[in-house]
Design a protein around this nucleic acid. Structure first.
Lengths: 330, 330
DNA sequence: GTGAAAGCGCTAACAG
DNA sequence: CTGTTAGCGCTTTCAC
């Protein structure tokens, strides 16, 4: 039979409520009985029933996590698994649990989250993908469900979020490119509607300007985050203008760009990526890219939402994770 | 205030137990009251408290999942995230939940699993990594904790497992290589102590033999699953013997091999990988490799353990997931 | 400081 | 077929 609080109480010759108090580290309990109870727990190898505790306290100490349903996306972007690792690492430290599920569409995700919250399965949720005018975020806000998002949202009012400093990261990339002796530097980024693209683009522009160069709109391309789009955009650049380097906002785009450069027989064009995916490492030559420390993004996302849930005084609403320029080629 | 079974009962003018019976789809309940109760639930937007149900039934409908703590490993192997996707997809269908956590060492993993089971957080666990003489598996067995492993174990007695047919997969690879006109085919695989390597190696040998060629031990190398090791082994092969193709058991190994071949200026050597990672796709030229359908491995792992937990008559002890040869180059 | 008792929201005998 | 009742294992007032 399963060992309960009663068994411990009996062995320690106290009441069940005292055992409970020891468990929850209640302040006014004598060190003497505390030790007796600890000893009894050890002896019986007692593990509190988390479910019972959840029911009694109406707090699950559990966070929800909804992954997109797209196997290809997940497989190509180590981002997700790294975020997961960071989250579980922090959660474990704080005795929080993670419930993992997935969803296809945005409505599906809302339905799933609704179920998780309404069924008392989770206290909060970590959003790894935030769209523009995200209906999920809106839904969570309206229902007062605590959540944290990875990626700085458009409107930050009473939102909790973590992100890299994308402006600074790209500023550094472009400075590096300039230091390598390049002067006509193209930019291929994702949709300019995305905050992340906006920030990286301003980092690019600022670096260009601060080094006395000129921002030229014909050198700036907006594409989707795929190899094909990177390829196409680069081909266009090659046709339309001249340049000696390309800064991209994603390794996949960069790989497309490299391919276009190879295919057209161009030489000495420096291409940089973003996200430091394994694909970048195994390019030949390896890509210069940016490590975004996705595991830290997950770690701090968990940290922020947990301290919010615990109503800690010191709880912050946002956190910036550092990035690092990875120069695989010397 | 949260809506409970009592509120529904009141509105539907029945007792709470009747509502509970409707919830659990009890056989003998009149369609009439059933409908009344459903209607009341809808009206109140009632969501059963899963925690309370868990406590009452002593079944959590939750599976545990322990990921290794190694960010690099996880990032380089889409395997894990794909397995995760498959698991959550099936679990969702069956109204099961997934608790995700991680662990560094084997002892840590045992400690974690012990906690999850003893604290009544999970009913079963899915093991994604199984070592030789795995202490975790042993621990779970000894304590009668239900579990399923991904990767056929050494001893299959009353184990539940899913795996690819690694023998057949490699048999096909080698046949393909031979059809391409190659006759001296090397094999670079992981540790021969691993079941997976053993099976792939016998597939290799069988194909070689069946096509009237000869297995030569100098063409067979045993290495770790890294690019460096693949590189080193290939360099050795080049020094020691001649060959016109290499079958490897991992894309990373294959990439190391390709590099060695490039570095030594060799031509026309066909290299094959395994696992169809994005790294393979983005090689130039892309690697011929094997899709192992990791998401299906996860899906069926979840399926097997859940039907075991539900004590379904039809519940199987193992399942083989199909593989597919991916010929990126033509 | 500690015990008794009620209750978290649900399920599952036991009656009828 | 349905209601009554007694828990599941823990926390938390309220006394003392």
């Amino acid at each position: 039979m399963r060992i309960t609080i009663k068994d411990v109480a009996k062995l320690a010759k106290v009441s069940p409520s005292t055992v409970s108090r020891v468990l929850t580290d209640h302040p006014k309990i004598s060190t003497d009985t505390k030790e007796r109870v600890w000893k009894a727990m050890k002896e019986l190898d007692y593990h509190p029933n988390v479910t019972a505790r959840k029911l009694a306290t109406n707090a699950t100490r559990t966070l929800g996590l909804v992954l997109p349903n797209d196997v290809k996306l997940l497989a190509e972007n180590p981002f997700f698994i790294q975020v997961l690792t960071g989250i579980t690492t922090y959660a474990r430290q704080k005795d929080y649990y993670i419930i993992l599920t997935n969803a296809g569409t945005e409505e599906d995700e809302i339905k799933t989250l609704n179920h998780l919250f309404r069924s008392n399965l989770i206290d909060g949720v970590i959003m790894t993908v935030v769209r523009e005018e995200d209906k999920c975020a809106q839904f969570l806000k309206e229902n007062n469900h605590p959540f944290v998002v990875i990626g700085k949202p458009e409107e930050t009012d009473d939102m909790i979020w973590v992100d890299n400093d994308n402006f600074q990261a790209m500023y550094e990339v472009v400075n590096y490119i300039i230091r390598q002796g390049n002067t006509r530097i193209a930019f291929i980024g994702g949709s300019e509607a995305l905050t992340v693209t906006k920030n990286r683009l301003s980092g690019y522009k600022m670096a260009i300007t601060n080094r006395g160069l000129h921002v030229e709109s014909e050198l700036i391309k907006e594409v989707k985050f795929t190899e094909e789009e990177g390829y196409k955009a680069t081909m266009e650049l090659i046709k339309e203008t001249t340049f000696d380097a390309i800064a991209t906002t994603d390794d996949l785009i960069a790989i497309g760009a490299l391919k276009a450069i190879r295919d057209t027989g161009k030489k000495d064009i420096l291409v940089t990526g973003f996200n430091n995916t394994p694909i970048a490492t195994y390019q030949n030559p390896p890509l210069t890219t940016v490590e975004i420390n996705a595991d830290k993004l997950g770690y701090y996302a968990a940290k922020l939402i947990i301290s919010k849930l615990q109503q800690e005084e010191s709880s912050l609403n946002s956190y910036i994770v550092d990035t690092k320029l990875i120069q695989h080629n010397e």
